[in-house]
Amino acid sequence: MKGYNFAYLDEQTKRMIRRALLKAVAIPGHQVPFGSREMPLPYGWGTGGIQVTASILGQNDTLKVIDQGADDTTNAVSIRHFFARTAGVATTTSTAKATVIQTRHRIPEETLRSDQIIVYQVPQPEPLSRLEPSRVETKRMHALADYGLMHVKLYEDVARLGQISISYDYPVLVNHRYLTSPSPIPAFDNPKMDRMPALQLFGAGREKRIYAIPPWTDVRSLDFDDHPFRPINAPQACGLCGAADSYKDEVVTDDRGGRMFVCSDTDHCERRRNDAA
């Protein structure tokens, strides 16, 4: 775009972000502070993910952007346009064809490959933030691997409700060391993070943190031996493609209790329908 550098950010800023990314990859799950820039999109809209994507994008990349699993939600459209405009890269809705996938709230159903990178938009990188608001304090807890507070939260859930009640942004332990937020993906997607062949990068713009999970890293969802982690999904099959094993959105079809369940991953659903046709 005229008057702007390739992919909006200037090269100095990209280098600064890449340095943070390298450090993040070297310490899986550890939040690395970075000089997050003001972006032309609001905080909370994916400024962290956009900065990470802008820093790793090359001219030959093919970019896919999803929000809630779908390529055509307004925010996904807006971010895809942003990069089409500022970087002129090829974009796609196909998970298989993408080299970089920026996502908000989902991991695609299709297993990602080692030649792909997934960039998560993260609103709150600190998994302990709801239990301890002070960052000075949570930083100390991470340094000492002092995660009693999180374990107690799980214990209290089971004692009170008979089961762990976290359904999204379900905390994980990365590489047996750092307690990490998977971003607000449904717990259903957590198992996909474990030993994923693709590089996973996380950007939190407002909170100015970057973290990463290198390929093939152990990612364990916190649980108890006798109350194991259970992903949550609607029991119904997709009303469009019939998939039983994909994550579903619930669509209200009328005001008399009518419901329809459809794949949240629109690319996955379309591909299945095309294959069947």
Binding site: N75, S167, P186, D249
Partner: peptide
């Protein structure tokens, strides 16, 4: 912004 994936999880939960 849409939060229907997370809300869906909460609903099922």
């Amino acid at each position: 912004l849409p939060h229907y994936v997370d809300f869906q999880s909460e609903l099922q939960n």
